[in-house]
């Protein structure tokens, strides 16, 4: 895939929030994040709350202006554009949120919800709209008849389908999915994950998939990045990262994910003490205070080590079950 140009490219992206009464306290939510997403690819981002994955998604949408770094969509730099210029480009990058209930206008019918962006951005005439809505509903697996209904008449899974139809109505180059299945029941979650896979196959949909459910991310993603306190600590193909984790944090995260397989109960695993953040780690490895593999001075080395096949990790101490590289 690497030979073609990326759809979206992110370089050294950072976001610093100022808080406290005088704005002097600073929180670095995202720090030096770089990656590329290629056409037809799903890029998964996992991490725990506060790791910056949602901030990252919002920066890609330019809902938040990054304090440092760049976001480039098909060769066009986005972060330097004015609000008006951005608005014109918005059809090219769309977003689906976790809470489908609050991201759909309760006073509008599905038909209007889906046609509004198309009419606003002049991607279709009012006369063609009905045809487009019908096609889009079919694409996301909803019967045509639902176009006249209001959001509250739908279940969570169906509403998420409406959100997807709306995002796809503008034929975007990339869709940012922020925890799209986290609020759904397992059986419904399976339907939406299947749908995302179908859209990738039939429409070559390019997407960034942010979630904390590891198995769901693994299922839909081609490549995965693991974030910890604002930084990407490991990235690579979905199987490399989750089946051959190199970073101790990735290992711990995988170990902590409850397995539905009864045979895996009581498996040997890393139980992390403490919580993310809190302690001072200044410019070293943010995970060092919780890391079971820590060695003297290792926290100062933050460079990404290449492990082959596009697999990179800031640390390799968890490789081969903890024996290191």
């Amino acid at each position: 895939m690497a030979e073609s140009a990326p759809v979206i490219s992110v370089e050294q992206l950072a976001m610093t929030y100022r808080d406290g009464l005088t704005g002097r306290r600073r929180t670095r939510a995202v720090d030096g994040v770089s990656f590329q997403i290629y056409e037809g690819e799903t890029f998964g981002v996992v991490g725990e709350s506060g790791c910056g994955k949602s901030t990252l998604a919002r920066m890609l949408m330019l809902l938040e202006r990054p304090t440092e770094g760049s976001v480039t969509l098909n060769g066009q730099r986005l972060d330097t554009l004015s609000g008006r210029e951005l608005a014109a480009l918005r059809p090219k990058f769309q977003m689906v949120f976790q809470d489908s209930g609050s991201s759909l206008n309760p006073r509008k019918r599905v038909y209007d919800i889906i046609t509004e962006p198309m009419l606003y951005h002049h991607v279709c005439e009012r006369s063609e709209a009905a045809q487009r809505v019908k096609a889009l509903l079919g694409l996301v697996g909803l019967p045509e008849g639902v176009a006249d209904r209001y959001p509250h008449e739908f279940s969570g899974g169906q509403r998420q389908r409406v959100c997807l139809a709306r995002a796809l109505s503008l034929d975007p180059d990339i869709v940012i999915l922020d925890e799209p299945v986290s609020a759904l029941d397992v059986s419904v979650q399976a339907q939406i994950l299947n749908l995302l896979r179908d859209l990738k196959e039939t429409r070559r949909m390019t997407s960034l998939f942010v979630a904390h459910g590891l198995a769901a991310v693994h299922y839909v993603s081609d490549r995965i990045a693991v974030m910890y306190l604002g930084r990407i600590v490991e990235t690579g193909s979905a199987d490399d990262v989750f089946h051959r984790p190199a970073h101790p944090y990735t290992r711990a995260l995988l170990d902590a994910s409850p397995s539905a397989d009864y045979a895996e109960r009581g498996r040997k695993r890393i139980v992390l003490a403490g919580e993310a953040g809190g302690e001072d780690w200044s410019n070293g490895c943010a995970f060092c205070t919780r890391c079971p593999f820590r060695t003297e001075g290792c926290e100062r080395d933050l460079s990404m080590k290449a492990l082959g096949g596009g697999h990179f990790s800031a640390c390799t101490r968890a490789l081969n079950g903890g024996t290191g590289a």
């Binding site: 059986s187 419904v188 979650q189 399976a190 299947n194 769901a216 299922y219 199987d239 089946h243 397995s259």
Partner: peptide, 19 residues
């Protein structure tokens, strides 16, 4: 319910079972 849950070592080419 059990078949609908994705697992980390499942065959990713397989479709998830949904009710």
């Amino acid at each position: 319910l059990m078949r609908a849950v994705p697992t980390l070592n499942m065959d990713r080419s397989e479709r998830l079972y949904s009710i």
